[in-house]
Simulated assay, not measured.
Amino acid sequence: MRQATRRRIPRSRTVLAVVTAAVLGVAGCDAVGGDSAGPSGTGAERSRPSPSPTPVWDTGPDSVAAVGDSITRGFDACAVLTDCPEVSWATGGSEKVDSLAVRLLGRAGAAERSWNHAVSGSRMADLPGQMERAARHRPELVAVLTGANDACRETTSAMTSVADFRAGFEEAMRTLRAALPKTQVYVASVPDLKRLWSQGRTSALGRQVWKLGICPSMLGDADALDAAATLRRETVRKRVEDYNEVLAEVCAGDRRCRHDGGAVYEYRFGTGELSHWDWFHPSVDGQAELARIAHRTVTAERP
């Protein structure tokens, strides 16, 4: 029998195959991308950098817009029946207040990157429009304090219903989110209006100013302590508590919203923290306290 002849592979082809394998081997180890498999194994896990997830809440936003009512406009804090946004808890530049914007951005930054779209006398139904205007600045934080005027009506029957209050706040949040999905929102609770009545009624001047029509559902017949007057004031207080539940619930449904947890409602404003013209709206010192509560909430590591 003839012995099978072994086929000889040219030496040049063998060298080419070795070089090609070496090149492919290097590419397979170092080039990770496209459809290429990344490193695997225990050593690879140790060398892979740990991801740093972006926090949902930024404790240092770089711009602030404010929406709300007369409290955020600094009404009656500087002069009788007059707005004074310079001392607003949210965006004012007064050194006596150190507003939320000043505390977050510094005084120069607050002057350049904060905006106050609150309107004295406004109610929850007005908030969506304010949100739309605030969103045009593309702020990183929107501060909200509204609801007192929804309870401060001619009569308790004229107060905004809880259902309408909820619908208004939900619409305001949708308006903001349609324009700015990632902007943060700070929501302050509505103050305890009955507490303000109990403090302010000690002032004869305050009671006279109340007769001009400031929150008649709570402040009307300020000295009356009969059953009807007591029931009226308790009805207003309960409605404010219901509003605060709505604010907390709607805010909780938005991952970039923080409610103050009832801090403003629970704060016991003293006579020094109320306007000495109407003994109802916050004074300069009261505005400073609102700013402190807001800053504490916004900068907390956890809500």
Results as ranks from 00 to 15, higher is better:
residue 47 S to V: 14
residue 114 S to T: 09
residue 173 M to L: 13
residue 47 S to G: 07
residue 59 T to A: 11
residue 104 L to V: 14
residue 261 G to A: 04
residue 248 A to F: 05
residue 109 G to S: 10
residue 110 A to P: 01
residue 55 P to D: 10
residue 61 P to L: 12
residue 187 V to C: 07
residue 29 C to G: 08
residue 7 R to K: 13
residue 71 I to F: 09
residue 166 R to K: 13
residue 34 G to F: 04
residue 272 G to S: 11
residue 123 R to N: 06
residue 149 N to A: 05
residue 27 A to W: 02
residue 34 G to N: 07
residue 57 W to D: 00
residue 231 L to F: 00
residue 297 T to F: 00
residue 281 H to P: 05
residue 237 R to Y: 00
residue 117 H to K: 10
residue 40 S to K: 12
residue 160 T to P: 06
residue 260 D to Y: 06
residue 9 I to Y: 05
residue 97 V to F: 02
residue 107 R to L: 13
residue 28 G to I: 08
residue 193 L to H: 01
residue 203 S to L: 10
residue 269 F to M: 05
residue 257 C to W: 04
residue 212 L to H: 05
residue 80 V to Q: 14
residue 22 A to T: 15
residue 77 A to P: 02
residue 195 R to I: 04
residue 201 R to D: 09
residue 68 G to V: 14
residue 32 V to G: 08
residue 234 E to L: 09
residue 35 D to H: 08
residue 35 D to C: 03
residue 42 T to E: 15
residue 108 A to E: 15
residue 264 V to C: 06
residue 256 R to G: 03
residue 79 A to V: 07
residue 248 A to W: 07
residue 244 N to Q: 02
residue 90 A to R: 04
residue 189 S to G: 15
residue 130 Q to R: 04
residue 289 E to M: 13
residue 21 A to C: 09
residue 124 M to Q: 04
residue 95 E to V: 12
residue 36 S to N: 15
residue 224 A to C: 13
residue 7 R to T: 15
residue 4 A to L: 12
residue 257 C to R: 12
residue 14 T to D: 05
residue 108 A to F: 01
residue 150 D to W: 08
residue 246 V to T: 14
residue 225 L to Q: 15
residue 216 P to M: 12
residue 109 G to N: 12
residue 211 K to I: 09
residue 113 R to V: 03
residue 45 E to T: 14
residue 159 M to I: 13
residue 110 A to W: 02
residue 275 S to R: 08
residue 109 G to R: 04
residue 258 R to M: 05
residue 28 G to W: 09
residue 189 S to D: 10
